[in-house]
Design a protein around this nucleic acid. Structure first.
Lengths: 340, 340
DNA sequence: TTGAAAGCGCTAACAC
DNA sequence: GTGTTAGCGCTTTCAA
């Protein structure tokens, strides 16, 4: 049985009130009493019972994260880094991180409601936002604190951190075009994800801006897994007039595309150029190392978390919205367009 | 302000006790009253305040997971799958999952102590066990519930799930030997990890059993990242008499090794054989697809979680210890040993 | 500067 | 069957 505030009170012959206030460093407690209390607390190995504090404060000091997973095997390096970013910042700010996973849909929404209504968390971090995001609509409707990684269609009246995917893809297309590529394949993310829209917009805009023919931009859609990158790259390469470059909208799909190309005996970076997006650590040591757009996921996790905590504490000045500027990380997966 | 049992009590003109018992389906409450209560609860949108319940029950219904990370960029597909496995099972059993990350060491241990003493969690899942595991020693000493993924040196008097890494690596070595490889490189995990010992044991035992010369087994050590696989493979291949096969002790390092080989113009599966361990989803669509040892991480997470919950509830019959039998997944990263 | 008393929302021992 | 009372461990009026 761990020591309680009552034990301390008894030990030093004071009231629990005094002990509580001393522990919380109120300034209506004499320094001597404070010392006394602290000493006793130390001696007894006192640790506050967090549940009691939470009940009393009607606050949980806990942040919720419901990771949207699809399918049983869920294995995305992206998320471990994101969780680490949130988790470390949360710990630093004295918050716990409650993690669960749910497939997008009703169950997922129900999980949000449940966690809120049972007072499990003080706020949510919403990740991988969708164009019409039921999670955000819900949270917004009931006025529950949250911060998002990513934006949505429509009203953007909530705190978020995002990277400018439009610009990111423009950098990619520009780079590819400078290498002489005129016919490009794009492996897009699922269309319901908001970042899909931005990235695709950037691609199309740049393509047009460069005066390339629209018919030379071939967009196929993947589901962010390596497998889908593999499959979609095959679809692209099976075309009668295949593109000379493939821009995948995340690194995992880019890896899949690399495999597909290599399976056909193509040398990536020479016969076919491939790019990714995210700059996960593995990009550095793939073969060839992947040219990609940097997205500092760990820091984003950290930022979103901080944003949310500020909201929860009510010290959020104005609506915080951060749009990060991406940069292109050039490695060896691209080369000049082969002569036709 | 959400409804409380007091509100329900008031509404139907009964005591809070009655309401509480009706809600918990005690059998000393008349069916009519139960219906009445349930109806009122429904009407008021009542949801129990979890913190109050936890305080009262002196139980948190929460499982802790402290992910051991090294370095700032932590991005391992292994862990996202493991977390998903635990998380889903936990949710299904009515438990929350509290996740944090800590570098192995004092801070990490302190995090365990802190979570325990502040009554944040009812039990821990310990992952990536070490030969001398301070976490397990601590937990064992204070008698706090836990279940581990992996074993340790010495007394194994705790519940765990592990895969038989010794056998797993034997399968690998046997397979490589059958392909004619006589000189092999091994990229081992950090020596303080328990699974390192088993896997290495398996390798050495099989090597000897097959009558191969000990000097033809070259062991180097990585840190489980792709980068280290890359570096260590280079070290191996730089040797005057390089091995014809490299067995990496996890998939990520195997990928790094593949890159290193390919950078040198070697064709993996022909000029050099490479194997991994884990069978993460990416192995299926790498180039070439990786031959590896299957380890059902999602299920393991699930099993460990269930084990722990049973322990917490005191319904753990005997000490549960599970050792899974590995299987070799043969894909295309290995081939016959090239003629000298 | 300190303490008594009330209460956060829920459960449980014991009476009626 | 149901209600009274007490209490989980903590914080917070309000009085002294």
């Amino acid at each position: 049985m761990p020591a309680t505030i009552k034990d301390i009170a008894k030990k030093i012959g004071k009231s629990t009130t005094t002990v509580s206030r001393a522990l919380n460093d109120f300034d209506d407690i004499s320094p001597e009493t404070k010392d006394l209390v602290r000493q006793a607390a130390e001696d007894l190995g006192y640790i506050p019972n967090i549940m009691a504090q939470r009940l009393q404060k009607r606050q949980t000091d806990t942040i919720g994260l419901i990771v949207p997973t699809s399918g049983p095997r869920f294995s995305d390096p992206f998320f471990s880094e994101f969780i680490a970013g949130i988790g470390n910042k949360a710990a630093q700010m004295g918050y716990d991180l409650l993690v669960s996973t749910r497939e997008p849909g009703d169950q997922e929404l129900e999980a949000y409601r449940h966690n809120i209504r049972s007072h499990r968390v003080d706020g949510f971090i919403v990740v991988r936002t969708r164009r019409q995001d039921a999670r955000i609509n819900l949270l917004r409707k009931i006025g529950f604190p949250f911060a998002a990684f990513g934006r949505t269609d429509g009203d953007l009246d909530f705190p978020y951190v995002d990277e400018d995917g439009e610009l990111g893809m423009k950098l990619v297309i520009d780079y590819l075009a400078k290498l002489g590529h005129k016919r490009m394949g794009v492996i897009a993310p699922p269309g319901d994800l908001e970042f899909s829209r931005y990235r695709l917009n950037g691609i199309r805009a740049k393509f047009v801006e460069l005066g390339l023919a629209e018919k030379d931009l071939i967009v196929v859609q993947g589901d962010l897994t390596q497998r889908s990158g593999y499959e979609q790259a095959n679809n692209l390469l099976d075309m009668p007039n295949p593109p000379t470059a493939i821009a995948a909208c995340n690194d995992l799909m880019a890896f899949g595309a690399m495999s597909a190309a290599q399976m056909r005996g193509l040398v990536v970076g020479r016969d076919l150029s491939i790019t990714g997006f995210d700059n996960i650590p593995m990009t550095e040591h793939s073969h060839p190392p992947l040219t990609t757009v940097n997205q500092p996921i760990y820091q984003i996790g950290s930022m979103v978390c901080e944003m949310l905590v500020k909201r929860i504490c009510g010290e959020a000045a104005d609506l915080e919205q951060v749009l990060l500027t991406p940069s292109l990380i050039v490695r060896q997966s691209c080369g000049p367009a082969p002569l036709a």
